[in-house]
Amino acid sequence: MTGTVIGMVLFVGFGIILSSGRGSSLIAGFNTLPQEEKDKYDSVALCKFMGKVMFALSSSMILWVLSEVYEINWLLVLGIILFIGIVVFSLIYANTGNRFKK
């Protein structure tokens, strides 16, 4: 349970940094692009989106903690399904439709 709480705190911290429009260096893949490729993207919009994703992931992790505290296994399953669903949605949303291109 302690590891989950630490993970939640880290995700919320990253979410706060990213939601402010800064911290593009925290986004895997984006920080490794050459500068001329980075200039093609709206990094503020991408950071804000990823900040919302971090908040959503940390919210699903609350179910993990609640399942441990109240010993309700279906909360853990629901939390894991939500976590995976959020990750899949965010990957598809961010990589289709050129949403973050300038």
Score class of each variant (00 low, 15 high):
Thr2Leu: 13
Thr2Arg: 04
Thr2Lys: 11
Gly3Trp: 15
Thr4Lys: 09
Val5Leu: 13
Val5Gln: 13
Val5Trp: 06
Val5Arg: 13
Val5Asn: 10
Ile6Ser: 14
Met8Ile: 15
Gly13Asp: 03
Phe14Thr: 00
Phe14Pro: 00
Gly15Asn: 08
Gly15Asp: 04
Ile16Arg: 07
Ser20Ile: 03
Arg22Glu: 02
Arg22Tyr: 02
Arg22Thr: 01
Ser25Leu: 02
Ile27Ala: 00
Ala28Ser: 08
Gly29Leu: 02
Gly29Met: 00
Gly29Ile: 02
Gly29Phe: 00
Phe30Pro: 01
Asn31Gln: 07
Thr32Asn: 09
Thr32Cys: 05
Leu33Asp: 04
Gln35His: 14
Glu37Lys: 05
Lys38Arg: 11
Asp39Arg: 10
Tyr41Leu: 08
Ser43Gly: 13
Val44Thr: 09
Ala45Gln: 08
Ala45Lys: 13
Ala45Met: 06
Leu46Gln: 10
Leu46Ser: 07
Cys47Ser: 14
Lys48Gln: 15
Phe49Gln: 06
Met50Gly: 04
Met50Trp: 05
Gly51His: 00
Gly51Asn: 00
Val53Thr: 12
Val53Ala: 09
Val53Trp: 08
Met54Ser: 10
Met54Ile: 01
Phe55Val: 02
Ala56Ile: 03
Leu57Met: 11
Ser58Trp: 00
Ser59Ala: 15
Ser59Ile: 09
Ser59His: 10
Ser60Tyr: 11
Ser60Lys: 14
Ser60Gln: 10
Met61Cys: 09
Ile62Pro: 08
Leu63Ser: 03
Val65Gly: 15
Val65Ala: 14
Leu66Gly: 08
Val69Asn: 03
Tyr70Cys: 10
Tyr70Ala: 14
Tyr70Lys: 14
Glu71Asp: 15
Ile72Trp: 11
Ile72Phe: 08
Asn73Asp: 14
Leu75Lys: 04
Leu75Pro: 10
Leu76Ile: 01
Leu76Asp: 06
Val77Ile: 15
Leu78Gln: 02
Ile80Phe: 14
Leu82Thr: 04
Val87Asn: 05
Phe89Leu: 12
Phe89Arg: 08
Ser90Trp: 07
Ser90Tyr: 02
Ser90Asp: 01
Tyr93Ala: 08
Asn95Ser: 11
Asn95Ile: 02
Thr96His: 03
Thr96Tyr: 02
Gly97Phe: 06
Gly97Met: 11
Lys101His: 09
Lys102Gly: 07
